[in-house]
Structures are given as structure tokens and as C-alpha cells.
């Protein structure tokens, strides 16, 4: 694309249409009024220029759609990877928090214990602060349940003796830390009459550490890819600066400040960042839609009412804001590094 096809460059004004005759309105103002008018007109002209530059730099990007889309695509992918992983983790946490609630300790009681003794023990355990619900299952109940669930039914009637032990099922109080759960298990194990205490801590523990690892990985990946976004935008802006070198020289010759020269490039960076994060949002939303059906089937197979969580409003806003900030920062880095090197000779 040739430079001549960009009709709205740095500081370009609209080509005038029919000239209007000037109105001279005589006014009398005090000095203070005049300086106030001057200040407000300065602010207005500053705001006008910002609006103009923001629009110009966006139009420039739109006029080179292919190149712009390539850059936006790279940025979007770099932003989508950590955000997608974050979503995966959030969903995984939702699933496991359900499991976590059903974590329970089974206390198998010694065969010699009577039902009354068992009940008593259960009541004793229920008084502990770190214990939620406690349920006593007598030997007889255990056998009935087993008959019903196993399908052996009548075959079990031929047994002379009930081989099943009485069980006390203990749910740890909710919000108990992993170490506290382990402590509870040790305590319960020590009760007289308890033959064996079982808590499937091993997988809870593993899952817990996997989650922690996942969170670390997401943070690390986000940092690395954030830097990648900075570099991509910085490099794109560097090329833009290079292609407008002559313009920068002329602007500096006729008295343009560094801020004036920087402005269009900073806006360009912000647009890249915002556009990239918007595209990333679209990618993630589409992937979630694509995954919804299989996840639903999987959840149904496990008789779960689990629903895939997408990006909520807050996440979306953070993503867009992050994109804009990264874009601005990348552009700022490129601009401070390269524009001061372009001076009239």
C-alpha cells in the first residue's frame, strides 16, 4: 500500500469546502475572563486533536486490513492462550469443589462393638468443631444397603454371619484445609473401637497440588505471552515510525513537540491492543460454544448438572483493559526508543 493512499495523516485537517465570510464580533472582557477563555479554548483544541488523532490512527489501520488483521491475530492468540487456560482452571476448580464437598472419612468399627456403643461413639465425634455431618450405619443397615445395591439380594441370606462392619461416616467441616483434614483423620483413627479410618486424601492432595501448579503455569504463561504482545506491538509501531520518518522530520522542523509526534503512534498501539483482545474474546467465546455440547454430554454421563463457565463481564473487561494497556505500553516503548533518533539534519 503506498503512502499516498493514506489521506488522513498526522495532524491533517479536513480540506475546506466553501469559504465563509468572517464575522467580527466585538466583545469586551476582563483580563481574567480572557485568560479563562484562552485556557478553555486550549483544552478544547487539545481534546479536538486527541479525537482527530484517535480517529486518524484507527482509519489508517482499517485501510490496511490484511496487515492489521495479521497483527491482531498474533496478539489475539497470545492473549487467548493464558486466558483459555485460566478458564479451564476455573471450570476445573468448579468441578473439584463439588467433589471436595463430598470428601468423607469412613470409620470402620471393630466387630466386637455393639450398635449402642457405635451410636455413642458417633455422638461423641459429632461434638468436634472440625466435623460436619456424622452418620452411623449399623451392621444390619450396612447389610441391607449392600443387598440393595449389589444385586446379590437373596444370596446373602444364606450367610450365617453378617461379615460387614458398622461404619461411621464423617464429613469434615466445610472449609477445612488439607492439613486439618489429615489431622482429623489421625485423631479419629485413635478412637477406641475404630478399626480403620479411611479418607481418600491422596487424590485430594494431588488434585490440590495440580491446581496450584496450574495457577502458577497460567501466571507464568500470561507473563511470557504478555511480553510477546509488547514485542509484537512494539515492532509493528517501529515499522510504522520508520515508514513515516519524513513526516516526523517535517513535523519537528515546523515546531511539533515530541508529545505531538508520539500521539498517533500511541493511539495506534492502543487500537492494536484493544482489537487484539476483542478478537481474543471472540476466539474464546467460539471455542466455548464448540466445547459446550461434548462437555454437556460428559456431565450427563456423570449425572452432574455441571455447566461450562465462560468469561463473565468482569473478566471480559479485564481482558480488554489489559489489551489496551499492553498496546499503549508496547507503542510507548517503541516510540521513546525510535522517535528521538529521528531528528532533522
Amino acid at each position: 500500500m503506498s503512502r499516498r493512499e493514506n489521506p488522513r495523516p498526522i495532524g491533517a485537517t479536513r480540506t475546506p469546502d466553501t469559504p465563509r465570510p468572517e464575522k467580527v464580533v466585538p466583545k469586551r472582557e476582563t483580563g481574567a475572563q480572557i485568560s479563562q477563555i484562552k485556557r478553555s479554548s486550549q483544552i478544547r483544541s487539545w481534546a479536538r486533536h486527541h479525537r482527530q488523532v484517535a480517529l486518524d490512527s484507527m482509519l489508517r489501520l482499517i485501510r490496511a486490513p490484511f496487515a492489521t488483521l495479521m497483527t491482531l491475530g498474533v496478539i489475539a492468540i497470545a492473549l487467548s492462550l493464558p486466558t483459555g487456560l485460566y478458564l479451564f482452571l476455573t471450570n476445573a476448580q468448579l468441578v473439584t469443589s463439588n467433589w471436595d464437598g463430598s470428601a468423607q472419612i469412613s470409620l470402620y468399627l471393630q466387630q466386637s462393638l455393639t450398635s449402642e456403643q457405635g451410636e455413642l461413639l458417633a455422638q461423641q465425634i459429632e461434638k468436634r468443631g472440625d466435623v460436619g455431618e456424622v452418620q452411623f450405619i449399623s451392621k444390619e443397615q450396612a447389610l441391607l444397603e449392600f443387598k440393595a445395591l449389589s444385586g446379590f439380594g437373596e444370596a446373602l441370606d444364606y450367610l450365617e454371619d453378617n461379615p460387614l462392619p458398622a461404619v461411621i461416616v464423617v464429613r469434615p467441616a466445610s472449609g477445612l484445609l488439607l492439613e486439618q483434614q489429615e489431622e482429623l483423620l489421625r485423631d479419629l483413627q485413635g478412637f477406641t473401637g475404630v478399626d480403620e479410618a479411611q479418607l481418600d486424601l491422596a487424590w485430594v492432595k494431588r488434585l490440590y497440588y495440580i491446581m496450584q501448579l496450574g495457577q502458577k503455569a497460567v501466571s507464568g504463561l500470561a507473563a511470557v505471552l504478555g511480553i510477546a504482545v509488547l514485542l509484537v506491538i512494539g515492532n509493528t509501531i517501529r515499522l510504522a515510525i520508520e515508514s513515516r520518518r519524513q513526516e516526523i522530520v517535517v513535523v519537528k522542523l515546523v515546531g511539533g513537540t515530541n508529545a505531538f509526534v508520539r500521539r498517533p503512534f500511541l493511539y495506534t498501539g492502543v487500537w492494536y491492543g484493544l482489537g487484539g483482545s476483542l478478537l481474543s474474546w471472540c476466539l474464546l467465546t467460539l471455542s466455548l460454544l464448540w466445547l459446550e455440547q461434548p462437555v454437556q454430554s460428559l456431565a450427563n454421563a456423570y449425572a452432574s448438572d455441571f455447566n461450562l463457565m465462560g468469561l463473565n463481564q468482569e473478566d471480559t473487561l479485564s481482558l480488554l483493559l489489559l489489551g489496551a494497556v499492553l498496546g499503549w505500553l508496547g507503542a510507548w516503548l517503541a516510540v521513546t526508543r525510535h522517535i528521538s533518533a529521528i531528528e532533522p539534519r
Binding site: 489521506p7 495523516p9 495532524g11 491533517a12 485537517t13 479536513r14 480540506t15 486550549q42 483544541s45 511539533g256
Partner: peptide, 24 residues
């Protein structure tokens, strides 16, 4: 000359005024 060929004659001449933030 140091003119910019990516804009009109008008916009070339206007540049110093735009830099000063003058009203359109």
C-alpha cells in the same frame, strides 16, 4: 521543499497551525 506527498497542499500548509492547536 520538504513537503509531504501523502496529503493535499492545504494540509501541508496547515501543519504548523495544527501543531499549535488552532481552531479549524
Amino acid at each position: 521543499h520538504q513537503l509531504l506527498f501523502d496529503r493535499s497542499v492545504f494540509d501541508n500548509v496547515a501543519l504548523p497551525l495544527v501543531i499549535e492547536g488552532m481552531e479549524p
